[in-house]
Amino acid sequence: MDTTLGATLDPARRTTHDASQRLLDSSAALSYDPMTEVDWDAPLDPSHYGLNPEWSTLYGTRLWSEMTEQQRVTLTRHEVASIMSTGIWFEMILQQMVLRDQYCADYSRPDFQFALTEIADECRHSIMFARACQKMGISAYFPTRSSIQLGRGFKSLATAEVAYGGILVAEEVLDVMQRDWMRGEQVLPIVRTTSKIHVVEESRHMKFARQEMRERIEGAGPRRRQTSALVIAVAAHVIVSNMVNEKVYAAAGLDPARALAEAGANEHHKTLMRSSCAHLMEFLDELGLLTRPALAFYKRVSMV
């Protein structure tokens, strides 16, 4: 670590400097190359799910009990492909926001260097998810047209705690899901391995996002906190509502209207979502970013 530089910083900046250096050291010690870590040539076992069945949007519903085993396998594969597609979409937004944030920053600082390391990670993750979907024989799923346009605005305008808050939301929600999938014995090995890679490397990204949010929000007044809280919540709503595309149900041979209705009323899935967001909500509350208007958006997608 550059102790000379660290010694010249004020205590708050020195803490950020040291934390970023630790993340850089961790990246150097433990990172993966998906092109060699994933067995892309292995055949797919037709009995393996795309994700743990418990994470399916229809698990526990009457429709789920009526589905054949093949329909369940097909649905979960399309669901995970949709989630991966949404991940690629947001990772492209993330990369642009981080690049804007670091434009002409101090190149010698470890937080600048880790930001570029994160961008490199996200590029590999996007290619990894794209190849996994291709391997499963599933075409890309896309967000709604309005969400794509909102994403354009968000990636162009979001700064400071709003940008890193949006990043943290996307990463935290997916992290809990993938920690479960990577241990699922019924889950396709290709999904288990890509989930493991993503979990390990995203854990550093989440620490960096939290670190940046704490630093950027420090000293902010009530009005700024209210505004930032609302924008982050709207971004979270857009991300989560696009994770599972409604077309996955038709792909599994289901009646889309009935499937959407039962998925929307599925208390089991809502409980899983709330539990996966518990730590995120605690952190946002700690920063004064869990306001009443923000809560209304989180509740709409069962994040609280």
Rank of each mutant, 00 (worst) to 15 (best):
L51I: 08
L51W: 00
N52F: 10
N52P: 10
N52T: 11
P53N: 11
W55M: 15
S56A: 10
L58C: 12
Y59A: 12
Y59L: 07
Y59S: 15
G60F: 10
T61I: 09
W64F: 01
W64T: 04
M67G: 14
T68S: 15
E69A: 13
Q70L: 08
Q71K: 01
Q71L: 05
R72A: 01
V73C: 00
T74M: 06
T74Y: 00
T74C: 06
L75C: 04
L75V: 04
T76R: 01
T76C: 02
E79S: 08
E79N: 09
A81S: 15
S82T: 03
I83T: 08
I83L: 05
S85L: 00
G87K: 07
I88Y: 04
I88V: 15
I88G: 13
I88P: 04
F90Q: 05
F90R: 02
F90D: 01
E91V: 02
M92I: 11
I93T: 08
I93K: 04
L94A: 07
L94Y: 12
Q95F: 02
Q95T: 10
V98W: 02
L99C: 05
L99S: 14
R100S: 14
D101K: 09
D101S: 15
Q102A: 15
Y103W: 03
Y103H: 12
A105F: 03
A105N: 12
D106M: 03
Y107I: 11
S108P: 00
S108K: 06
R109C: 03
R109F: 06
R109H: 11
P110G: 07
P110E: 03
F112T: 14
F112L: 14
F114Y: 15
A115N: 03
A115Q: 01
L116K: 14
T117K: 09
T117M: 15
T117V: 12
E118F: 14
E118W: 10
I119Y: 03
I119S: 09
A120R: 08
A120H: 08
A120D: 10
C123K: 06
C123R: 08
C123G: 06
C123Y: 01
R124A: 15
H125F: 11
H125K: 13
H125M: 05
S126M: 12
I127C: 11
M128D: 08
F129M: 12
F129S: 10
A132V: 12
A132H: 03
C133E: 02
C133G: 13
C133L: 10
Q134C: 08
M136A: 13
G137Y: 00
G137V: 01
I138T: 11
I138D: 03
S139V: 07
S139H: 07
Y141I: 09
Y141P: 12
F142E: 11
F142D: 10
P143H: 06
T144V: 03
R145V: 07
R145G: 07
I148N: 04
I148C: 13
G151I: 07
G151Y: 02
